[in-house]
């Protein structure tokens, strides 16, 4: 599975304007629906929030992977957002979160959805990669970095 299959450059936000958890989720959802016509922002925000209620998807080290399942989708879709300032995302290590990778999957695609989550979380474990993304300035740069890192493993 390649991340490029479900993340497109249009869905990358090089500088999030959001300052709160709710705003981040909204901005990521907007990017998702921009890149994939047919995804309604409200619905995406809703499923992401439902998941956050169970416990933050902020997995620590400044990374969060908000995700959810949506009926009527054909395939996995993702968006990515960067906040240099950092947002309080209730992350499990209590630190501010900078890198956000949002993922929505069709209702019945459990296996692929889970594999993508595991893959993304493994990718972002690499501190060199995280630092490089924080340095990137444009959506294209970020996208390229993610694709490169993805090709390595």
């Amino acid at each position: 599975m390649k991340i490029a299959e479900f993340l497109s450059p249009q869905a990358v936000i090089p500088e999030l304007t959001a300052r709160t958890k709710a705003e981040v989720l909204r901005e990521l959802s907007q990017a998702l629906s921009r890149a994939h016509a047919g995804l309604r922002v409200e619905r995406v925000v809703e499923v992401l929030q439902e998941r956050e209620k169970l416990g933050s998807t902020g997995i620590g080290e400044g990374v969060a992977i908000p995700h959810g399942k949506l009926g009527g989708m054909v395939q996995l879709q993702a968006s990515f957002g960067l906040s240099r300032e950092g947002v309080d995302f209730d992350a499990i290590d209590g630190k501010p979160t900078h890198l956000f990778f949002a993922l929505v999957a069709p209702e019945n695609s459990a296996g692929i959805h889970l594999k993508a989550l595991a893959r993304i979380s493994r990718l972002f474990k690499n501190p060199v990669f995280r630092a490089a993304i924080l340095e990137a300035r444009t959506a294209e740069d970020i996208y390229r970095l993610i694709a490169q890192e993805d090709a390595k493993a």
Partner: peptide, 20 residues
Amino acid sequence: FYIDEASAVAGSSLADIPLP
């Protein structure tokens, strides 16, 4: 863990869960 509707693993078989 409590499995909620919104948990990523809800509805999948154990074989599908990429546990470390």
